[in-house]
Amino acid sequence: MSIEKVENKKSLQQEAADGETTMPTDHQATGIESHAAEPLRVVVGALAQMRYGTIQLTVHDGKVTQVDVTERQRFAG
């Protein structure tokens, strides 16, 4: 992953954590198709709340059909 992508990911996570989610409301103007809007909101919300874990997307025919969120609990040993 490039440095630019990592910085963008950190920026989106920080914005989501700060309550400044950048999820657009006008999907046609931003190029986001309407079928992708809700899964993107779910992913951004999960990133905002998660410290450790995974987010897995299931795609059928080019559309997200399922989002699985697994959060890990880490304890000091």
Results as ranks from 00 to 15, higher is better:
Gly62Asn: 09
Asn8Phe: 15
Thr65Ala: 07
Glu7Thr: 10
Asp26Ile: 10
Glu20Val: 02
Gly31Val: 10
Gln13Ala: 08
Gln49His: 07
Glu33Ile: 09
Gln66Arg: 13
Val59Glu: 13
His35Lys: 08
Val6Asn: 13
Gln14Phe: 11
Ile32Ser: 03
Met1Thr: 10
Gln49Cys: 01
Gln66Pro: 04
Gln28Phe: 10
Arg51Phe: 04
Asp61His: 10
Glu7Trp: 06
Val44Gly: 01
His27Ser: 08
Glu7His: 07
His60Cys: 11
Arg72Pro: 00
Arg74Phe: 04
Leu40Thr: 06
Thr30Gly: 02
Tyr52Asp: 03
Val42Met: 11
Asp26Lys: 10
Gly31Trp: 08
Ile3Leu: 15
Thr25Ile: 12
Val6Glu: 15
Thr65Asn: 06
Lys10Ile: 11
Val43Pro: 01
Ala16Gly: 09
His35Gly: 01
Val43Tyr: 00
Thr54Ser: 13
Ile3Thr: 13
Asp26Glu: 08
Gly77Glu: 13
Gly31Glu: 10
Gly31Cys: 13
Pro24Ser: 08
Leu12Met: 09
Ala48Val: 04
Asn8Leu: 15
Ala17Lys: 10
Arg72Val: 02
Gln73Pro: 00
Asp68Cys: 05
Lys9Ile: 10
Gly53Cys: 01
Thr58Ala: 08
Ser11Val: 05
Ala16Ser: 09
Leu47Val: 03
Asp68Ile: 09
Met1Ile: 12
Gly45Asp: 13
Glu33Gln: 14
Val59Phe: 10
Thr65Pro: 08
Ala76Pro: 02
Met50Gly: 00
Thr21Phe: 11
Glu4Phe: 12
Ala36Val: 05
Gly62Ile: 00
Leu47Asn: 04
Arg72Leu: 12
Asp26Phe: 05
Thr65Gln: 12
Thr22Gly: 12
Pro24Lys: 07
Gln13Val: 09
Ser2Ala: 11
Ala29Gln: 14
Thr70Tyr: 08
Gly77Leu: 14
Gln14Met: 14
Ser11Lys: 15
Arg41Met: 13
Gln28Asn: 14
Ala16Tyr: 06
Val69Asp: 01
Thr30Phe: 12
Val44Arg: 04
Asp26Cys: 04
Pro24Asp: 12
Gln66Thr: 14
Val69Ala: 02
Arg41Gly: 15
Met23Asp: 05
Met23Asn: 04
Ala37Asn: 10
Gln66Asn: 14
His35Glu: 13
Ala46Pro: 05
Val59Lys: 06
Thr70Val: 15
Val43His: 02
Met23Ala: 10
Val44Ile: 14
Asn8Pro: 01
Asp26Pro: 02
Arg51Pro: 00
Thr70Leu: 09
Glu15Leu: 15
Thr70His: 08
Ala46Trp: 02
Ala76Arg: 07
Thr22Ile: 08
Leu12Thr: 02
Gly77Pro: 09
Asp68Asn: 08
Asp61Arg: 07
Gly77Lys: 08
Thr25Phe: 12
Arg41Asp: 12
Pro39Leu: 06
Pro39Tyr: 07
Thr54His: 05
Gly77Tyr: 09
Arg51Gly: 04
Met23Leu: 15
His60Arg: 12
Ala48Trp: 00
Asp18Ser: 06
Gln73Phe: 06
Ala17Tyr: 06
Leu47His: 00
Ile32Cys: 06
Arg41Asn: 12
Lys63Ile: 11
Lys5Ala: 14
Thr30Trp: 09
Asn8Gln: 15
Ile32Gly: 03
Ala46Asp: 01
Ser2Trp: 03
Phe75Cys: 00
Val6Arg: 15
Ala48Leu: 03
Met23Arg: 04
Arg51Trp: 02
Val59Gly: 04
Gln66Phe: 07
Asp68Arg: 06
Ala29Tyr: 13
Arg41Gln: 14
Ser2Met: 07
Ala29Arg: 15
